[in-house]
Simulated scan of single mutants.
Amino acid sequence: MRHDKAVMVIELARRLAASAEGLTLDEMAREMDVGRRTAERMRDAVLMLFPAAEEVSDPPNKRWRIRGGLSAFEQAPTTGELVELSKAAQGLRASGEQARATALEGLERKIKAAMRSTTLNRLAPDLEALVRAETIAIQAGPRPSADEAVLSGIRNAILAGRPLDFTYSRPGAEARRRSVAPCGLMFGRANYLVAADRETAKIQTFRLDRMSAVEPGDGVASPPQEFDLAVFANRSFGIYQDQVEDVVLRVDAAGAGEARGWRWHPTQVLEDQADGGVVVRFTASGMRELAWHLFTWGDQVTIVAPERLRQVMAEELAAAQRAMARR
C-alpha cells in the first residue's frame, strides 16, 4: 500500500473512532472525498488493521465505528495542527473572546498532556518557533465579547430545550426583559444569539454583550421545526437581517483579480467581462453592511442592483460628508 493510501486509512480510522454512531459507506466516501468502491476498500483495510472496529446495524443501512478510541501513536497531532490550534486561541484572546480562548487553550493542554513525552519533545522546538513567527492581524471593528456565564447559559438552554430569559439593553432604549426559544449562536465581528420570540415566534438576533441576567425559563421551548441556522446566517451579507435582495455589482478590470479571489457570499456567481472586469451576483440581506464594505473598494465597484443598495450607499456617503464638514 502506497504511503498516501496508508495515511487515508489512518484518517478514516480516526473518523470512525470519533463517531459515536459510526459511519455508513456513503458517509465514508463523502468525508474522504473518494468513490464508494474506494471507500469499501479503505473500510476493509481499517477492519483488518484495527481489531476494535465493529459493524453496527442501523436499518436500512450498516455503519462502522471503532470503540474505545485509538492509541497515542495513531492520534499524535502534527506540528501544523498544534500551531493552528494555538493561533486560533491567540486570535480569540486578542479580539476579546476570553472565554472561547480559554476553552481552546484548555484543549491544547489536554492534547499535549496525552502525548508521549518523546513525541512532545520532538515537536516542541518547531512548535515554539512557528508560534513566535506567526501572529493574528486584528482588524478594526466591534470588539466581540462572549461572557462565559452568558455562553454557558445559552448552551445549557439549547441542550435542555428550555426557554431563555434575559435582560436586553440597546443604546437609546429602555432595557427589556425577554423570553425566547434559543436557536443557536453566530460568532463574527460581534456575537449574537439567534432566537425565536416566544410570543410572536419571530426569529431575532441579540448581541451577547447587551444581554445580562441570563437564566433558563420555565417549560419547554425549541426552535421552529423548519429553522436552519446555517441558512439563516447565509441570508445576510453580514449579521443584520432585513429584506433579501438580488445584488449585482460590477468590478472594473483594476479590481477584478482581487474580486475573483474574494468570498462575497455563499450564493455568489462571478461572470468575466470582455473588458477584463467581473460581474458579481448574489442574493442577500444586510444592505447597510454591504455598503460599508463597498467603501473599501473605492471607485472600482459599480452598483448595478438593487436600487435600495444605491440609496443606502448614498445615505452613508452623505453622512460621511457631513461628518467631514464639521469642525
Rank of each mutant, 00 (worst) to 15 (best):
L290P: 06
R43P: 00
K110A: 15
N191M: 11
F73R: 02
R322I: 11
M42C: 06
D209K: 04
D299V: 06
A76K: 03
D4I: 07
A291D: 14
Y192K: 05
K62E: 01
R308Q: 11
A221S: 00
Q300Y: 13
A53I: 03
T283D: 00
M48D: 07
G172L: 12
G219I: 07
I158K: 04
F73V: 15
G298A: 06
D299E: 15
L16T: 09
F282C: 03
P266D: 08
P182K: 02
S145Y: 10
V301R: 07
D165A: 13
L270Y: 12
L151G: 05
D26H: 15
R170A: 15
N234C: 15
A253C: 05
D242N: 12
G172Y: 14
G217P: 00
G286V: 09
V304D: 15
D242W: 10
E245D: 11
D126H: 05
A20P: 12
K202C: 03
A319I: 10
R210A: 08
Q75E: 14
R36Y: 07
W64I: 02
V244T: 04
L208Y: 04
D26V: 04
I158G: 06
V46L: 04
D197G: 11
S169C: 03
E289T: 09
R67H: 14
A20C: 07
T167G: 13
H3W: 12
L104N: 00
L104M: 00
A256Q: 08
A196G: 00
A196M: 03
V180Q: 15
M313H: 09
V278T: 08
F166W: 02
K87Y: 11
L104Y: 01
D299Y: 12
N156W: 03
M8Y: 06
D246T: 13
A230F: 13
T119E: 07
A114L: 14
T167W: 05
S145V: 01
S236D: 00
T78A: 14
A230S: 11
V9T: 07
T38H: 08
E245Y: 08
V83Y: 05
T78I: 09
V269P: 03
A89Q: 04
V7T: 15
D275G: 03
D197C: 08
W297I: 08
A221C: 02
A254C: 05
L85D: 09
G172H: 10
R15W: 13
Q321M: 14
S19R: 12
H293Q: 10
A254V: 11
N156G: 04
D242E: 05
P224E: 06
A319K: 13
I239Y: 08
P144F: 04
V301G: 09
G96H: 00
R116K: 15
A201K: 10
G238P: 01
G69E: 11
T135Q: 10
T296I: 09
P223M: 03
N61V: 09
D242Y: 12
K110N: 08
R250L: 04
E148T: 13
T135I: 01
A173N: 14
A17G: 07
